[in-house]
């Protein structure tokens, strides 16, 4: 499937240079055995990386480095002799921070000095606190008066929840350490809307249906 190829092709460079997590290494290896398009992609990426490795920037020669080090030495000595920056004492704070702090203190002082609702309502508040807890019938009425619970939000197009694929694979492919530790956002961002929808639909279905889908996924991963 195309979306699976796109998902796994992100791990191809890591798979090729051995820097992919074990979970994805196994997934990619299993997928490459059955997907000629991804195999071709892997070969092409290997060639590009090899081309880059065999064409490094050439060393400019000892004369270049001699001159480089001589110039740098002069600059370093000059920098070393320059007077150090005056270190700000730890008790000095930036001017704007001091101004903001003073303003905040002033606002608080003014707020407390002005007569506000909290000063006049102190006695009634205390009386309210002394009242017993509301009766259960009243509590029920309060609950009924509450608006109905909002339906659970639909899955966003780009979910940031970490999804564990550990349940999808065979026991041979999974281990306790294969909990997803990668950020799926960059991966999902590259999928089209339709692909994203398809992926999310399948994940949802899997959660609802349970074991038979897990088995079918584990078979189709190979």
């Amino acid at each position: 499937m195309k979306w699976r190829c796109k998902l796994l092709q992100r791990w191809l460079p890591g798979y090729l240079d051995g820097d992919a997590p074990a979970f994805w290494r196994r997934r990619v290896q299993a997928h490459l055995e059955h997907c000629p398009a991804c195999r071709q992609e892997a070969e092409a990426l290997k060639e590009v990386a090899a081309a880059l490795k065999v064409a490094p920037v050439e060393d400019p020669g000892p004369a270049f480095w001699q001159e480089f080090n001589r110039e740098l030495h002069l600059k370093l000595v000059q920098a070393n002799q320059a007077p150090p920056e005056r270190e700000r004492p730890w008790f000095r704070i930036p001017y704007f921070a001091a101004a903001a702090a003073s303003l905040a203190v002033l606002v608080v002082v003014i707020a407390y000095q002005m007569p506000g609702p909290h000063q006049t309502a102190t006695a009634p508040q205390m009386a309210k606190e002394a009242q017993p807890a509301p009766e259960p019938a009243k509590a029920q009425k309060l609950e009924m008066a509450k608006p109905p619970a909002a339906p659970p939000p639909a899955l966003p197009a780009e979910t940031s929840e970490k999804v564990s694929f550990a349940s999808l694979g065979d026991e041979d492919l999974d281990s306790e350490d294969d909990v997803l530790t990668w950020d799926p956002d960059p991966v999902l961002a590259d999928l089209t809307d339709k692909e994203r929808e398809t992926l999310l639909k399948k994940l949802k279905q899997q959660e609802e249906d349970g074991s038979w889908l897990r088995k079918s996924y584990s078979a189709s991963w190979a």
Binding site: Q9, R10, W11, L45, V48, A49, L52
Partner: peptide
Amino acid sequence: SYDEISEVLGGTAGAARVNYCQALKTLR
């Protein structure tokens, strides 16, 4: 490694991996 690249360029190791993959494809 991708962790070291993320320290140099900022971001996460995952983002470094994605950037590297994208760079290889674009160079190709």
